[in-house]
């Protein structure tokens, strides 16, 4: 009898320990980045592009990479929405009756979601070679779009599935076509669409492997789609591999900037999800 009790207590303590480690690792990571990054943080980092000799420790900032990342992540998310919203509607509204078909499509998008970004990057590079254009903002946007389509489709699909069937039926019984019904459904899930956008943007802005060969790198802020563009994660990676201490330090500061951007996005989407599930009931 006593043994049983001891066993339960033992495992309960183990569970608490595990939960502390898993959740605590978040603080460890963010804490490390803050501690190392803050000393090197400056206004210049946010407002200037790299000056001459930036990579040996002289003047400048990473504005080029911040803007470049916003362009890539923004462009890919917008492009991705144009593809994924129709796809999610198609799966949920147009082929509603054929369960096998819609289930298979869902599995296919789940699998696409599992394909690592390095493969999307390599494939994006193949597309670029095929069409004969060089590493550029456009190339980066295309590769990252491939990466975010499954994220957007999966999130939108889940949100659309929370819409009660009767709402769609109400529109249909007024004589609406499926497309007109889809518009009603989209209106209903507006907060869910924002969540999907945030998730996609957050993933896109932090990914390196997909932009490594496709977006290139440049110290200037790109002014057209065909110019190469720097991205924040890549800037971090490059600065960190420098032997110069000052440059490495700026790498930590850049990591801090990216962490803050991503944390804001994640917190916002968490809040949206909470709100959304409240309205549902």
């Amino acid at each position: 009898m006593k043994l049983r009790k001891t066993e339960e207590v033992f495992f309960k303590i183990l569970m608490i320990l595990a939960a502390v480690i898993v959740c605590g690792s978040f603080f460890l990571i963010v804490g490390t980045i803050f501690a190392k990054g803050i000393p090197y943080m400056s206004l210049d980092m946010l407002t200037k592009t790299p000056g001459g000799g930036f990579y040996i420790g002289k003047e400048g900032g990473i504005l080029n990479a911040i803007i470049g990342s916003l362009y890539v992540a923004g462009g890919a998310t917008i492009l991705g929405l144009f593809i994924s919203v129709p796809v999610a509607i198609f799966i949920n509204i147009y082929i509603n009756g054929k369960k096998f078909l819609s289930d298979s499509l869902r599995v296919a998008f789940d699998v696409l979601f599992g394909i690592p970004s390095i493969v999307y990057g390599a494939f994006g590079f193949l597309i670029m070679v095929y069409f004969g254009f060089r590493a550029s903002l456009l190339g980066g946007i295309i590769a990252v779009t491939l990466l975010v389509i499954p994220i957007l489709v999966r999130t939108l699909d889940e949100v659309i599935r929370t819409v009660p069937r009767e709402l769609g039926d109400a529109a249909l019984s007024l004589g609406a076509t499926r497309w007109e019904m889809a518009k009603v459904v989209l209106r209903q899930i507006k907060p869910g669409i924002f969540t999907a956008i945030l998730l996609s943007f957050g993933r896109a802005i932090g990914d390196v492997a997909s932009v490594l060969f496709t977006a290139g790198f440049s110290d200037n802020i790109p002014t057209s789609l065909h110019e190469p563009a720097a991205t924040l994660p890549l800037a971090i990676f490059f600065q960190l591999s420098s032997p110069v201490e000052e440059v490495q330090g700026r790498g930590y500061a850049s990591a801090l900037i990216l962490t803050i951007i991503v944390l804001i996005i994640t917190v916002l989407s968490e809040i949206l999800i909470k709100k959304f599930s409240k309205h549902k009931s």
Partner: peptide, 20 residues
């Protein structure tokens, strides 16, 4: 089908106002 449905108004178990 849209023409058929227009001829009949449906009132379901719970009210489902459109989101507008």
């Amino acid at each position: 089908v849209t023409h058929i449905r227009k001829k009949m108004g449906l009132l379901s178990q719970r009210p489902y106002p459109l989101p507008m």
